[in-house]
């Protein structure tokens, strides 16, 4: 197991997980909500990367039919499905970011701060 961790062919996974952790770090540790949203997008991006890197095949080309290659041999083209998934997931991610940002705008207009601790304090104040 330890061998596989450092095996060179695994480097994409290591990089992707590192990116994912960067995103999660931003989401958990930062107090500023905008930074949390940035962390969220980084986190989502790492997932897209995981899909995309899995679509590659050694020696294959992009999944657009090349008349010279024909369509019989699947090893000549990369896997189109993960790319489709990423396209969809990406839009979902953008949508989430959009809603998050509009909430941020609302919050900033209303409270003049994006500090999470401060916002939570004000929320509790208003509730009681």
């Amino acid at each position: 197991m330890t061998v596989e961790f450092i095996e060179i062919a695994r480097y994409p996974y290591i990089l992707i997980v590192a990116l994912l952790l960067v995103g999660l770090y931003g989401m958990t540790v930062k107090r500023n909500l905008l930074k949390k949203v940035i962390g969220m997008t980084i986190f989502q991006t790492s997932i897209y990367l995981l899909f995309i890197q899995g679509a590659t095949k050694q020696g294959a080309t992009i999944p657009v039919l090349d008349p010279a290659l024909g369509n019989e041999d699947p090893t000549l083209y990369m896997n189109p499905l993960p790319q489709v998934i990423v396209l969809t997931a990406l839009v979902v991610g953008v949508a989430i970011t959009a809603v998050a940002l509009s909430l941020l705008v609302l919050l900033y207009r209303r409270y003049g701060t994006l500090d999470e601790v401060e916002l939570l304090r004000r929320m509790k104040e208003q509730a009681s």
């Binding site: 999660l24 989401m27 909500l33 949390k36 949203v37 969220m40 986190f43 989502q44 989430i96 809603v99 998050a100 909430l103 941020l104 609302l106 919050l107 209303r110 999470e116 916002l119 939570l120 004000r122 929320m123 509790k124 208003q126 509730a127």
Partner: peptide, 18 residues
Amino acid sequence: GERGAPVATLRYLLFGAV
């Protein structure tokens, strides 16, 4: 809803995104 709602919702959104 009430004034605190967007704060709570944004937190939900972030956590839900995770």
